[in-house]
């Protein structure tokens, strides 16, 4: 092997990388908050919601979980404009991530809701709470706490999956790597650096979610 590794370009191109990292972080922040909110709503609808809503949510969840994220992204970015809905690349990427995480977190959160002991619902009802009040004040937080580790892994998976938004020219970390690659022809170095940054982001995100979990769930859940 006669190839000589060369990382001198890092000094010149680090603003691009930094911008890419910030875009990736922005995407996952918006994606996680809105995606988990959407997922919570869908989980409520599937587990406890009105019967007309259940098949609609089930269809949405199955459609998203059984198609690649890349195709969902292309459909939103290239397909929807023909219905008159023109989206910027960052908006399209954000929407795709929210829709994607919404479907996955729905199934995870639903498992948490269904693991709630029946007595909790009965206790809520005996205090004259409506089913929704029981869900909101009694069931929801312990359910989320039960599945928080699984939910955290899914958020990390979605963050790593977000690398494909570079394909619709959203300027994330992968986009920066592609840009550097095309300027310097240092393909391997550009990708190894961004791969390591992704690895660090994944580890940091996992830790951050443990900390966030500690804030949201100060007490131990009833099992």
């Amino acid at each position: 092997m006669t190839y000589i590794f060369e990382f001198g370009w890092l000094a010149e191109y680090y603003p691009q990388i930094l911008k890419g990292v910030l875009t990736t972080l922005q995407l996952i922040a918006v994606g996680a908050v809105l995606g988990i909110s959407l997922g919570t709503f869908c989980a409520w609808a599937r587990a406890l919601g009105p019967s007309w809503l259940k098949p609609i949510v089930a269809t949405y969840v199955e459609l998203i979980r059984n198609t690649p994220f890349l195709i969902q992204l292309f459909f939103i970015f290239f397909g929807l404009p023909s219905l008159g809905l023109q989206l910027g690349e960052l908006t399209a990427a954000n929407i795709a991530m929210v829709v994607n995480l919404g479907a996955y977190s729905c199934e995870i959160i639903r498992a948490g809701i269904q693991a709630t002991p029946k007595g909790q619902f009965e206790a809520g009802a005996s205090l004259a709470m409506t089913p929704f009040e029981t869900f909101r004040h009694v069931v929801l937080v312990p359910s989320l706490q039960r599945i928080w580790p699984a939910l955290s892994s899914q958020v990390v998976i979605v963050m790593l999956g977000s690398s494909v938004v570079s394909q619709i020219a959203a300027e994330d970390l992968t986009f920066a790597a592609n840009f550097i690659q095309s300027r310097t022809f240092r393909a391997f170095e550009a990708y190894i650096v961004s791969t390591l940054i992704y690895l660090c982001l994944a580890i940091l995100l996992r830790q951050a979610l443990v900390v966030v979990g500690g804030f949201i769930f100060p007490r131990r859940a009833a099992r």
Binding site: G161, V164, F188, S194, T195
Partner: peptide, 23 residues
Amino acid sequence: ELFQGTPLLMQLFLAFFGLGLFG
């Protein structure tokens, strides 16, 4: 940890460009 903690897309790029380094 390495393969689950990095994007599949990056692994594809590295395989595509990395193997080329070995001629």
